[in-house]
Design a protein around this nucleic acid. Sequence first.
DNA 1: TTGAAAGCGATACCAA
DNA 2: TTGGTATCGCTTTCAA
Lengths: 360, 360
Amino acid sequence: MKEPRYSGVNLNSKRRATLSDVARRAGVSPVTVSRALRHPEMVSEDLRQRIDAAVRLLNYIPNHLASALASTRTQIVGVIVPSLTNGVFDDYLGAIQDVLNPAGFQVLVSNVRYSDQLEEKAIQTLLGYHPEAIIIAGVDQTERSRDLLRHSGVPVVQTMDITDDPIDLNIGLDHTAAGAAAVRYLYEQGHRKIAHLTARADPRARRRHAGYQRAMDELGLSSEGLVALQPRPSDIEMGGTLFAEVLARVPDVSAVFTCNDDLALGVLFECQRRGIRVPDDVAVIGFNDLDFCVASVPTLSTVSTERLKMGTWAAETILEIVRGSGKRPAKTQIDVGFSILSRGSTAVAATKAEKRARTA
Amino acid sequence: MKEPRYSGVNLNSKRRATLSDVARRAGVSPVTVSRALRHPEMVSEDLRQRIDAAVRLLNYIPNHLASALASTRTQIVGVIVPSLTNGVFDDYLGAIQDVLNPAGFQVLVSNVRYSDQLEEKAIQTLLGYHPEAIIIAGVDQTERSRDLLRHSGVPVVQTMDITDDPIDLNIGLDHTAAGAAAVRYLYEQGHRKIAHLTARADPRARRRHAGYQRAMDELGLSSEGLVALQPRPSDIEMGGTLFAEVLARVPDVSAVFTCNDDLALGVLFECQRRGIRVPDDVAVIGFNDLDFCVASVPTLSTVSTERLKMGTWAAETILEIVRGSGKRPAKTQIDVGFSILSRGSTAVAATKAEKRARTA
DNA sequence: TTGAAAGCGATACCAA
DNA sequence: TTGGTATCGCTTTCAA
């Protein structure tokens, strides 16, 4: 009876071909094979062909671990994101890969699920692979995480948020300002009873909330009863739930700013259920500009952020550093800003806006 | 003028501490340090403390590449997915990580964006890291990809779909059957003019389409003008566009089965825009059971698949094999099936269903 | 253009 | 319980 078995690296039978196997097969030395693969132009036509043939015959695939160890160039960039479920990080990751992969770099993604503890562990694990750079979302790492990153000796780019005290490089936006801007936008449309819904309360959502509060204070508006907060991860359904809470307390609420688009869509659905008209009875504005914002009925106003740009800049800057033998770039911090996208869910006839402002 | 520089592995200054550095610092041999870290109980209390102190002092982080090379155990599992944008693969990836990470395995994710070519390249790259197993979504790899995977010598799990000719292990579901089941479900609700919308047309979507066609044929229904197909990647907006196409051709279409939930949600919005009532005028059923299906108005009926289970089984089976010294498990193929979730978008009063069936 | 020797940072195996 | 030695697969000098 023959037991089927695997012959992978961790097992003993039929091991994978190595550089030496190829060399033997082609009748040359291992160094020559290495050259033929990495700098074909340095090897004679004749040998190159024999080597190529041997490579194909033996299904040779270079052992990246060995080559990284020998060359002390891992060609790995570590990327840490707080979530994948969240539509926000897809574009961003895609942008990073689009820059890094063609340049021969492998991206090692670690999803830390909004947990500081997981983040610390992920950083440790990542550093074990000796990445040539690290891109990490957010600026709120624990002291230990910051220590690890600083000691790593490789460039670190913090993205998505902006800070006075970056670990190293930083590209992001001011979420407090963005939150405040959303409120002011609604104010200018004539709204006075402006609610804020927020869930998960990660650091950036908290800053948007702070921005909301600051703007309300500055505008002399009371936020009494208008804020609904939920520590659990946000989803579309929760938007409805949180809005219901606010409605119960402040039936004449006139606008809602949510910490993300999911909640905003949830509000839209909740309004539909209750026969509340958007934007006529209640205006809604979200955050992030996910795909569905332009598809929903009505279309969703939102605060748009430069996710692609943040990913691209982070990746390109890293390439520059790695290729430029480690010099820090001239620009080490960028504020990419944000913009308010005014769509159906906050559309207001001019006269109506005036009237609202008067009667408020 | 001092130029700031990085001291990462690829540069020469202040290199990261190695095992030997720690050994020197603690006054022991490198082997002892290795032991103290991997099997602390095999080292005397005294030395262990000195070593721990040195580790902390030097910020030592083991070089995973070196240890993998020496031990021929990389503790890496490669995972290939066709998309991340797609809500479908989040749960699945999460499930895989939840099993693998606690077991000390690192997951190397490769997003191949529904491209066979990228998939081939990704497999090559992945194999360069000598993963101990590979989990790949789908059963439609190119011949070259299949070759690479077979020759890799490591267990390969194909997920999400099911096939008579698996590369190795296989857990998935029959998408043709699922597509047919959706149609039959609508038929039983009394629908006769059943449309199908499909985009991207990846292999699994194509099978669902084939299932639709088969069921329509078997039920003696014509699909003339009822199918709208779009090769571009699907999104919510496109659901509306495709439905509009069908409406133009078959104004009295009574039900829509879409190849995924995004399109279904798009149909919902399009209906809202046109004042078409769902489910009264048109019934809608999607595929995948993404989060928003329970949040929308009306809630979306859909075909639910066992994404979590597929990820979990794949990961657990791999652990079993790797730990069980390479023996293939007893079960090498699982059909996880699917289920029809009947929600608001297909709700029908019994009498109405009968009437429909009669007048059709 | 090609090859020999040394070494990357760790572990396995065998002695002490 | 501790350490010496060979080795993992490849690249980097440096010589031929």
